[in-house]
Computed example of a mutant assay.
Amino acid sequence: MAAIDDVYLHVIADGVVQAFEEIRQSATETVATGDETEVTALLEARLNRMIEEDQVWRQLVASVVRGKESLSFDGAHLEKRPDLSIHLTSRTRRFPLIAEAKIIDAARGEQLYCRQGLQRFLNGEYAWGGREALMIAYVRDGSTIETRLTPYLALPAQATNYAVESAPTSLGLGLYDASRTGHRRSFLYTHTPPPANDPGGIALWHLWVDASAAAAT
C-alpha cells in the first residue's frame, strides 16, 4: 500500500488521544486499573462515536474495530487479532491502519511493549500490507518514551532484535507524548516474485497516554 500522508496520521493521532482523554474522564477507574482489553474497548467505542459527532474525523475514518480477525502475511495464521483496526474512508478495508495497545506500569514495561507489541509489525503478523502503524501505551507509572523506550531501543542487542532503522523521534505534537520509529521487516511476501516481494520498512507512531488515576483529577 502507498504510505499514508503524515498530515492524516497526525489527525488520527490527535483523534486517538482526544478519545482517550474523554474516556479517562468518564471511566477513570477502568482506565486506571482495568486490563488492556477493557480500556481498548472503551477507546474503540469512543472513536466510533466520534464518526457521528466530528465532521473532520468522519471524513477520514469509516469505522474502528477491536480484535478484528486478520491474516498474517503468508496466510499461515488465520486469526490474528490486532487491538484496533482503523478503517479509513480512502483506503481498502482489506488494509486498515493497525493500532496495538499495551499497559506500561511497574510490572509491565518496555520489554513487553516491544516483545508482544512492536515485534508483531516486524514479522508480518500485523500491518504487513501497510507502511505504518500505531503503538499505544496506557501509562500508569509516569514513564515516558524518552525515559523508557528510547534508551531501550538504543541498546545494541535491542536495536538488532527490533531492526531499528531510526530511533524514536518526537512528533512535535506538544500536547502529548508521541514519537516515530523506523524498522526493517523480517519477512518476504510469498505471493509475488522479487524484488516486489520485499515489504520494505515500517514507520511506527508511538502514542503514550497518561492512564494514571491522578491524571483524571
Rank of each mutant, 00 (worst) to 15 (best):
C114T: 14
G172D: 08
A154L: 09
Q158S: 03
A159K: 10
Y162W: 10
Y113C: 12
G172W: 06
M135S: 03
L122F: 12
S170P: 05
L122C: 08
M135F: 07
E110V: 15
Q158P: 00
T169M: 12
L112Q: 13
R148C: 12
L153W: 01
Q119F: 15
L175K: 10
M135Q: 13
I145G: 01
L153H: 07
A137S: 14
A163S: 08
P151T: 04
A133Q: 01
W128E: 02
Y138P: 07
L118W: 13
Q111W: 14
E165I: 01
L175R: 14
S166Y: 02
I104H: 14
T169C: 03
Y126N: 03
Q116R: 13
L155G: 08
G109V: 06
A157G: 00
I145N: 04
P156T: 01
L171F: 07
A106Q: 14
P151E: 00
F121Y: 15
R108G: 03
Y152D: 05
P156H: 01
I145Y: 02
G109C: 11
R140S: 09
G117W: 09
G130E: 11
Y176H: 03
R120F: 12
Q119L: 15
C114N: 15
T169K: 12
L112H: 15
E165G: 11
A167D: 08
T150G: 00
Y126A: 04
C114R: 05
E146C: 02
R131M: 10
A167N: 00
S166A: 15
A167E: 06
A106L: 13
D141I: 05
R148E: 14
E146F: 04
L122V: 13
E110L: 02
G124E: 03
A167C: 00
Y113K: 07
S143W: 04
A106T: 12
I104Y: 13
Y152C: 03
A159Y: 00
E146A: 14
L155A: 11
D141T: 06
I104F: 08
Y126E: 09
M135E: 09
V139Y: 06
S166P: 00
S170G: 11
I145Q: 01
A107P: 02
R115E: 15
E132Q: 14
L134M: 07
S143N: 03
G174R: 03
T144V: 02
I145P: 02
R131D: 10
T160L: 14
Y162G: 09
Y152Q: 05
P156W: 02
N161P: 05
L175A: 15
Q111R: 15
P168N: 05
N161Q: 13
G172R: 06
F121A: 06
S143G: 14
A154V: 00
R108W: 11
D105R: 09
L122H: 10
R115Y: 13
P156L: 03
I136F: 04
S170D: 13
P151F: 05
G130Y: 06
C114F: 07
T144N: 01
T160I: 06
A137T: 10
P168T: 04
S166K: 12
A163L: 10
Y162I: 09
Q158F: 06
A163H: 09
E125A: 13
Y162C: 10
Q111C: 10
